[in-house]
Nucleic acid binder design. Structure first.
Length: 467
DNA sequence: CTATGGCACGGATT
DNA sequence: AATCCGTGCCATAG
């Protein structure tokens, strides 16, 4: 990556500029941070100038910016801005400003921090420290490695207290995380799932009473024990393996399907935050593009001066450094500018989706957006790829979800099925969807159903009866 | 005969 | 140029 940039810096300015901007555009906060840090330490011409904070709300400000939160007039358009929040993310020097997020106990691993950030808002300081301790004892599967009692002892709190915190943690994003066993994780997931859709009672019973048989797939034995036909056991087992994950730590983003196990960057900091001022839904909607460093990057003016006075072979090297530095700064600005325009447009197009949920997602394609913003479509692709957004409800979703043509259809489909009185067949569902303006083929309904882990119509009947 | 899942094709996306 | 996704056709199960 670095060599690439060195190489590009030698090329004509415009090409290099373009190429590096592209590269930067496709980086996530974490990657960008690395990039900036290496560049900073390799290039003496680059400097990081001191951060400024808004006098009223103490938010970190860009070098010449005014505070976007305090100074902006209340209006209908979401405010989009770039912010530097190094301490927010990376547990840097803690300051006494008013970010509750800064009170995070520092946890190194990715999964623990990810979970902690979700639950932090609903916990007191004391609870947070217990939560942090609990989260530091997770294995790679997201399961707890020490007994609850031990945590209670270590933190000098009651067992009940720890249990309560564990329950909150278990309901955070990789649902079931922080459970003491795969079994417990499954049960928690089942609980959460049952809030939104029908869940076979048999599944719960089987997990609770015959976990070992289940994990060994001894369906015949299960059928005997629960006095149900073996087919039904298989259905339930299918349901479980489709929808539940005994190892929450291994699950991929929100969608349990296509568990391509090679997802390393699953627990990531969001690249963009969308929220209301003070969490007040009637307030101004803010969109914050995260910069992983605080302060502003600029070319060191002293270095520029020094260049005038140096001579000889040093001069060439310095000059190169200087050029690379100014290029880097320029590219970074370009990147942020593009991101800003992009997200501005996306948010205003998908406002309803952000506010009211998946069903209101508009179908927009990257190409469409590229035309509107008058940039090349690959620019959009790069900017969207691998980025994540935190919504006002604190859910973290991939930015590409805003471009998912099928998400809204899927959620409407789920809605239809959850409200159905008798099990509807796929073709009936297809008609209903068409009536609601979603033109999808019967075959596609089947696919979506599978994606959402909903059983076929004739099996749904069997399930609801046994319930 | 009907409902569903598998395979493969074509267009969109990256 | 490679990959993903919606869809049509066909085989199979009920």
């Amino acid at each position: 990556m670095l060599q690439q940039i060195h190489y590009q810096a030698l090329r004509p300015q415009t090409t290099a500029h373009l190429a590096q901007t592209m590269t930067l555009l496709s980086l996530t906060v974490d990657e960008l941070r690395n990039q900036i840090e290496t560049e900073l330490s390799n290039n003496p011409a680059l400097e990081l100038v001191e951060e400024r904070r808004c006098p009223t709300c103490r938010r970190l400000l860009p070098k010449q910016g005014i505070c976007p939160v305090c100074s902006c007039p209340q209006n209908n358009e979401p405010v989009v801005f770039v912010s530097a929040r190094e301490d927010f993310y990376f547990g840097g020097e803690r300051t006494d400003d008013d970010y509750p997020e800064n009170d995070f106990p520092v946890v190194e691993d990715k999964l623990p921090t990810y979970v902690l950030r979700q639950v932090a808002s609903e916990l007191t300081r004391e609870e947070l420290s217990v939560a942090a301790y609990l989260l530091t004892h997770l294995d790679d599967d997201g399961l707890l490695t020490v007994p609850l009692a031990e945590i209670a002892r270590y933190c000098h709190v009651s067992l009940l207290f720890v249990q309560r915190i564990q329950q909150i943690i278990q309901r955070a994003d990789p649902i079931g995380v922080g459970s003491t066993s795969p079994q417990e994780a499954l049960l928690v997931q089942l609980d959460v799932l049952s809030e939104s859709r029908k869940v076979p009672q048999l599944a719960r019973d089987m997990i609770m009473e015959a976990m070992n048989l289940l994990s060994r797939r001894q369906y015949a034995e299960l059928a005997r024990q629960f006095h149900v036909p073996i087919r039904q056991v298989q259905q339930v087992a299918h349901f479980i393996s489709e929808n539940l994950n005994p190892f929450p730590g291994r699950s991929s983003w929100g969608d349990g399907r296509q568990s391509n196990g090679s997802r390393t960057n699953v627990y990531r900091h969001p690249d963009i935050l969308i929220y209301y001022v003070n969490d007040d839904p009637s307030g101004q909607l803010m969109v914050e593009i995260i910069m992983p460093i605080s302060g502003t990057l600029q070319v060191n003016p002293l270095f520029r001066q020094a260049l005038q006075q140096t001579s000889g072979e040093n001069r060439e090297a310095c000059k190169e450094d200087l050029e690379r530095a100014s290029l880097f700064v320029k590219c970074l600005q370009q990147r942020n500018h593009t991101m800003k325009r992009l997200i501005q447009r996306v948010v205003s197009l998908q406002r309803d989706f952000i506010l009211y949920g998946e069903e209101h997602l508009n179908s927009i394609t990257r190409v469409q957006l590229a035309r509107e913003l008058d940039v090349h479509e690959s620019t959009i692709s790069r900017a969207v790829a691998n980025k994540t957004v935190q919504l006002p409800n604190r859910k973290i979703i991939p930015l590409s979800a805003f471009f998912d043509r099928s998400l809204n259809v899927r959620s409407v489909l789920c809605d239809l099925i959850s409200k159905e009185t008798k099990p509807l067949s796929d073709s009936e569902l297809a008609e209903l969807l068409a009536a609601r303006g979603f033109q999808v083929a019967r075959r596609t309904v089947a696919k979506y159903r599978a994606m959402e882990g909903i059983l076929p119509a004739h099996l749904r009947r069997a399930v609801s009866i046994s319930k």
